[in-house]
Design a binder for these strands. Structure first.
Lengths: 212, 212
DNA sequence: TTTGACATACCAACTGGTTGGTATTTACGC
DNA sequence: GCGTAAATACCAACCAGTTGGTATGTCAAA
């Protein structure tokens, strides 16, 4: 299948690394090839254009993060609200180390290329939306356990809306973290989000969960 | 002072427009000159480098938004919490029209250039932080009116922290809006933030505001 | 001997930036 | 208030380096 160990994979890894820290436009094809230890011929053998690499990188990112969250400890928690709070704790815990290590490739690229490369933007959007979708069942279950309609009839907010809002908070947290040179603000915002969700389920629940 | 009507000003306007929709790296000096109707000679007469233009654009953005918010209706509201909620209503109301018209230049640039152009990033950070700082007095006053310590001793959250969190939500909302092709998600997130703040001041206040 | 996976060498277009010049204000001695 | 010199604001042409992309070749496995 490959000469050394898959140039395509190495280019995707390089893209994740470089685009996360320099952005898509500022990362040249030569940069990517250099980082991956591969020639330009290999690049254009695997990808018809730089844009195609961008799309593939977003999809690669989706798979990476999908696996990360699938294996995360919060998946073991049974009670839906507890699992959601454990998810937020997990998101908070991984806000550590260098900025480009906990920052989101999809959000970074999406913001930069949404107008000029709609295809890349769509792949990034899909990455974020599909991750948000994994939260929806937890939220919906937690709502149902408290007699709330996940469609928002009784509360004015929906399970999917809250799932997306949590991604909004995380994406925004990354931006402020970049401005601040560290994750402190980001952690603080995740704490605010956690507090919000606790308040939502504490104050609006007419029927508290009988098991908790 | 100027030949036609200030090339420098026109370049800054062009930068705000182009960088908001294409990003900093993808916007070339030629693009900027073309949009501003000015030659490259003029560009490098007014700015020693493209990076310097980026810094100046962030500062220009700060002034623009500073004026916008200083003249906004929420400034007329007396009661602190009401003013804060009116601020959020204002932020929600201006989420309208084309993406590049309600999106934040500072957040867009900051995310893209934080590693490669620290000086630009600093200017963007300053723009966001100084705007957040205008919210702090409202929040602190609202907290004090309810017997809460703005430093966070009783609540675990501070006035400045909540101010920054609101910027986090807005910045994140812009990203998701770009993914969604419209402001709907962004508005939804501002609603969540508003609900959070209402819950914060409704549930944690031992001493409700006597005037409201 | 064909095919997939790369490498090498190359290209036209574009990049940020410089040069040397000109038109227009401004500062100021008179 | 006036002439003039210096400064400012701007322009057109140019430059070396880089850009994304291509044409052609190599080489091992099937």
């Amino acid at each position: 299948m490959s000469r050394s160990v898959n140039a395509r994979e190495k280019l995707l890894e390089a893209a994740v690394k470089l685009v996360r820290s320099k952005g898509f436009a500022a990362t040249s094809v030569d940069d990517l090839c250099g980082e991956a230890g591969v020639t330009k011929g290999a690049f254009f053998h695997h990808f018809p254009s730089k844009e195609a690499l961008g799309i593939a990188a977003a999809e690669h990112w989706s798979k990476m993060t999908g696996a990360l969250f699938a294996a995360a400890p919060y998946q073991q928690v049974d009670e839906p609200l507890e699992r959601l709070l454990a998810y937020l704790r997990f998101r908070r815990d991984i806000l550590d180390g260098e900025l480009c290590e906990f920052t989101c490739l999809a959000g970074t690229m999406l913001q930069e290329v949404y107008a000029e490369h709609p295809a890349i933007a769509a792949a990034c959007q899909e990455s974020i939306a599909s991750h948000a979708a994994t939260l929806e069942p937890m939220i919906a279950a937690a709502m149902l356990a408290r007699g709330l309609d996940p469609g928002g009839a009784s509360t004015g907010w929906t399970a999917s809306g809250l799932a997306l809002h949590s991604q909004v908070v995380l994406q925004g947290a990354f931006i402020l973290a970049k401005g601040n040179g560290g994750p402190a603000i980001a952690r603080d915002s995740v704490d605010h989000l956690t507090r919000y969700i606790c308040l939502l389920f504490a104050s609006e629940g007419a029927t508290p969960d009988p098991r908790s």
